[in-house]
Design a protein around this nucleic acid. Structure first.
Lengths: 254, 254
DNA sequence: CGCATCCTTGAGGGCCATCAAAATGCGTGG
DNA sequence: CCACGCATTTTGATGGCCCTCAAGGATGCG
């Protein structure tokens, strides 16, 4: 917990859009957003927040920990997205009503519960907040597109590196980076399911990053002395995360 | 041009959300949506509607033809999405302000131009329309997720089959299917860039679909006598497109 | 009819899948 | 503290999918 952007003041939603659109919102909007959350809950590894086809009347914003978006097919699981604190993990479920995938905890998680009734109110009475919520789902879509490109372009070691680079940057945006490490609860099976390779090959890919001296990954935790080198190896360009950079939202709006 | 859902009456936006949320919108909303478009334009193969990083003050809704979302990296092009008539192709650009990718015509195209000023008006005064616009971008995200899964799970022949199955279903939703064929302007290079394989391998994959008797693909046009067999081969489940089926939006809203 | 683009085919090599098996690490209970 | 059970990580071997390089054939357009 605790982005630099106001986690003290806004314990539930202080990381929401931090480093992106958050500084375009005024105090009134931020307070309104904080009151979207009526309750805080905790779950553990593998617990399902929302499953495919289910109708929910609340959405969740991640406060601490990691979550996956997964699609089951046959008896295999595919991970199509990862979430970090500040992400409104199933805002999609509010506007789509039913999800095409599952939202699952990847390790211990705390999250805030936002009733859809409150969100509807935001849509009707708070166009600025409504647009911020929309923006947040579009960020998810931008990340999806980058994953598509990553799968089309990169081999397994680079895919794994790219995933960690993305997480590193996303934590930077909410003010939670460590200099030389990135802690996750991911197993190599999780990495495999994100990369579309077998667990065995994911293991060899992790081994290659070690051999190359780029990163040491142990039990999901990544250690490196040179993030820039890892960025370059993974061909990681963080623009698509819409933080500072050429794509940053810098207009007045509404 | 001409979905069954009112292309006569709404020549610019008659296919928008057809088969999905369109029947939840009332006549007033549909008329408002039609007036979002102030102009119609035509472009040809490879023409760029909107390029990465560019700031636009209009968005486009596709009226006829196909468009790609592409990401350039090094000197290679990656296709991360395809659009068909009725799709609001760069609605993302309205809320994100700048895109992380390009929007490009794949063959001859006509599209409607929607000034952002009108869209802003919708957001402020028409919460139902605003939510429909949001819904449309979330459909795009759902398709992105399916592509991620497709790339993680399927080999090249199945990826190509899956892409055509998706298009077939999307045309069905707007009432524009032929029984035994699906016409596209795609080259095998386009298919390769969508599937993340080389053009040479895309060619062999096309050959395999022919050998298997599932589909004949010539110059982008697909011919088949058995869509069901193709669906099964590609492991295609159309639920994620949110037409009729278990995920369909069936609630009253707002 | 010439040219450009696209499609097709062959050969050799690298990335990754699967099967099989062993080692490591961690939590639990003795 | 140690023994045990279990999930995870690691390693080896074989084969398939897909890559690149290379070259030839088809198609459509001016």
């Amino acid at each position: 917990m605790g982005g630099k952007t106001g986690a003290m003041e806004f314990p539930n939603t202080g990381d929401f859009l931090a480093g992106r659109l958050r500084d375009k919102l005024d105090r009134d909007d931020l307070e309104f957003i904080e009151t979207l959350v009526t309750e805080e809950r905790a779950v553990g590894t593998g617990d399902v927040l929302l499953s495919r086809g289910e109708v929910a009347d609340t959405s969740a914003i991640l406060i601490s920990g990691y979550m996956f978006r997964t699609i089951e097919s046959g008896n295999r699981r595919f991970i199509v997205g990862v979430h970090v604190p500040g992400d409104f993990v199933d805002l999609h479920a509010f506007a789509l009503k039913r999800l095409d995938h599952n939202v699952v905890a990847a390790g211990p998680v705390t999250y805030g519960v936002a009733p859809h009734a409150r969100l509807r109110q935001a849509l009707e009475q708070r166009p600025r907040v409504a647009r911020a919520l929309w923006f947040a789902t579009l960020l998810d879509a931008a990340i999806h597109r980058k994953w598509i490109q990553m799968l089309e372009q990169l081999d397994a070691p680079r895919r794994i590196a790219h995933i960690y680079c993305e997480l590193h940057r996303r934590f930077e945006l909410i003010g939670q980076v460590n200099a030389r490490s990135l802690r996750t609860p991911f197993t190599q099976i999780d990495l495999a399911d994100m990369c579309g390779v077998s667990a065995i090959h994911a293991n060899r890919a992790v081994g290659k990053l070690r051999e190359l001296g780029l990163a040491e990954i142990r039990r999901g935790d990544l250690y490196t002395s040179d993030w820039a080198a890892l960025y370059e190896y993974a061909q990681f360009n963080p623009d698509y995360l819409y933080g500072d950079g050429p794509l940053r939202f810098d207009q007045d709006w509404l």
